[in-house]
Design a protein around this nucleic acid. Structure first.
Lengths: 347, 347
DNA sequence: TTTTATAATGATAACGCTATCATAATGTTA
DNA sequence: TAACATTATGATAGCGTTATCATTATAAAA
């Protein structure tokens, strides 16, 4: 069977205008600043828009408006959960604002990135702005080079601004606080905590949130209950194992990410411990792993897609608004604890 | 510190033309159909392009060209690995071809989607084409409604065309064949296989690939070694456990996806079996899980991002080329076996 | 040579929208 | 009711490209 599909030309402003019996600009106004138009006219125009199933042509709009940005999203070995959410959020925001997205994948086979080379490459791409995601946003040499090269950038996942770059990040601290509080409310006092890699700024924030919650509830924090991991399953299994092997082990273990929590679960399994009745185990990030394993992991979810949206909007404002702006630090703190089966009230 | 960042206007064709001392159209030709231009001129123009660091304005190009499509990507509870790769692939292709991407997330809290409602919604969006990803592409009611509504669509992950819709899929069969062959080359003959949910068309393809490889090497396939799973960790753990508990268990187990393979690994662990020395376990998909667990999973990787690229290109050709086209079925068969630690040669 | 075909370049009008300034309709004040 | 302010609408010129047709340089044929 042979078919000839053809792009069906969609209605234009002009056609809508003719049908509504007004000028093209009036239709444009109805679509953009409707407060400049009389109610009667709005109604007529909307009827025409509806009748023709008119959709504005974003290309033409952005071109004519002259304020369309080309924004690069730069990433390096992100987890797919992180990447997909960033992309979804960024694409959504870009579509609304009429910007274009360019992906710049710096992932490699384990080698380090060269800030000099990367910056040069980005510069040649003629981008109007950049979203630098972790761990790149924590690479101060790269950040400095980007600053020197004059590309407006948002540092995603950092809280401290650098040069005139704004940051957008998650409130890891309050999320860790909330999760710890949740465990405390379940009756746990002896809570183990596995810290993530210290290079990541958010590792410290998560730990701080944990400590603050404990102090807030006047619970003594046993130093032996705090272990250093590196965000891998293996480190979770090892450090979790050590916690579980203590003479008086904690009744709950809070790992700084899901991979490590899964490792702790594996360690508990191999010791024939019942989860969550003998020990509660919770993670952080709500990755897919958390619902893939058994028992499914109680964890806390970051609104990554929102962070991306906010970053795009910030870039938009910074570049397109002529009001001078100070470098800002936006902290998104929608904390969502996902209660699954790996944590329960103490007996 | 207050800073005023401003979008720096980038060079236009006109400026390049002036600098090169030629007309604007000549520059455009150099950028597009360079075979119409004299070599001398090309050189001059390229120098100017380089000097001004000129980047074509995609918006203007697409608008003037009049062949920019708005393509919707429709998905329903995809794994993040799948989604991120689809997005990366689709975005890359769209950028090259000057198309726009619109995301349509049909994911929900477990409820079923209503083909009627979905189709209506998509129709109102004024999309020029659609990428329908699994499991939606296997929903024949939805496919039929989309066909009725006249939106050009590519069915991703299916091999049989339906109506005049083309498909783009992965060659699961040859991938499963290759993986089975790999196990056979390692000396395994008693190989267990865990099938995935039968609703998914690719489940059968993977099983077929396994069987074909066994037959190809004249190895008897023990019916008791073939188990039915449902792509979950839990089913892998259960079915894998049953295989391992057989009087003469298989020396290798091939699960139809990584989640199930991870389940098999858990089952082996709980029986104190050494992986891979007592039993080799392999998966399918190369999800993040496969490198998160221990031992890291030997698995096979789908070029999802490529599939997305191809789908976009196909849509492009189908809609924009006026050569009548038959509905086609593209099967991408780049098979990549990722060798990690969960499979070894038999002793 | 002169003619004719061909290769190379240029001029101009779209593409569908917004910005900007001009004009018409309405309301307000003296 | 004249004079002015205000609100509502329209006309026109871009935005940065490509399409299309016209023109000029160059090569081939007569």
């Amino acid at each position: 069977m042979e078919t000839k599909i053809l792009k069906k030309r969609s209605a234009t402003l002009k056609e809508v205008a003719e049908r509504a019996g007004v000028s093209l600009m009036t239709v444009s106004r109805v679509l953009n600043n409707r407060d400049l138009v009389k109610q009667d006219t709005i109604t007529k125009v909307e009827a025409a828009v509806e009748a023709l199933n008119y959709r504005p042509n974003i290309l033409a709009r952005s071109l004519a408006g002259g304020n369309s940005l080309v924004i690069g999203i730069v990433y390096h070995n992100p987890s797919s959960g992180y990447l997909s959410e960033i992309l979804v959020g960024a694409m959504t925001a870009c579509r609304e604002l009429g910007h274009q997205l360019v992906l710049e994948d710096l992932s490699d086979g384990g080698g380090d990135i060269d800030p000099e080379v990367v910056t040069h490459r980005l510069q040649k791409m003629g981008l109007d702005g950049l979203l630098l995601t972790p761990p790149l946003s924590a690479n101060s040499v790269l950040v400095q080079k980007l600053h020197d090269s004059n590309i407006p950038t948002i540092l995603v996942g950092r809280q401290k601004t650098q040069y005139d770059f704004s940051t957008v990040s998650f409130n890891d601290q309050s999320a860790a606080f909330a999760m710890t509080q949740y465990l405390i409310e379940l009756g746990h006092k002896d809570i183990g905590f596995i810290v993530g890699s210290i290079e990541q700024p958010f590792s410290g924030r998560r730990k701080d949130g944990f400590l603050q919650a404990m102090h807030h509830h006047n619970i003594y924090v046993n130093d032996a209950f705090i272990k250093q991991g590196d965000y891998t399953f293996k480190s979770g299994m090892e450090q979790g194992g050590e916690l579980l092997d203590l003479e008086n082990p904690p009744t709950a273990i809070f790992a700084s990410n899901d991979d490590m929590a899964a490792g702790v679960i594996a360690a508990a399994h191999s010791r024939n411990l019942d989860i969550p009745n003998s020990v509660s185990i919770v993670g952080f990030d709500d990755t897919e792993l958390s619902s893939a394993i058994w028992p499914a992991l109680t964890t806390v979810r970051q609104p990554i897609s929102n962070i991306a949206k906010n970053s795009i909007k910030l870039l938009h404002d910074n570049i397109l608004t002529d009001i001078p702006k100070a470098a800002s630090s936006t902290i998104i703190d929608t904390v969502e604890i996902i209660r699954r089966e790996s944590a329960a009230a103490i007996k």
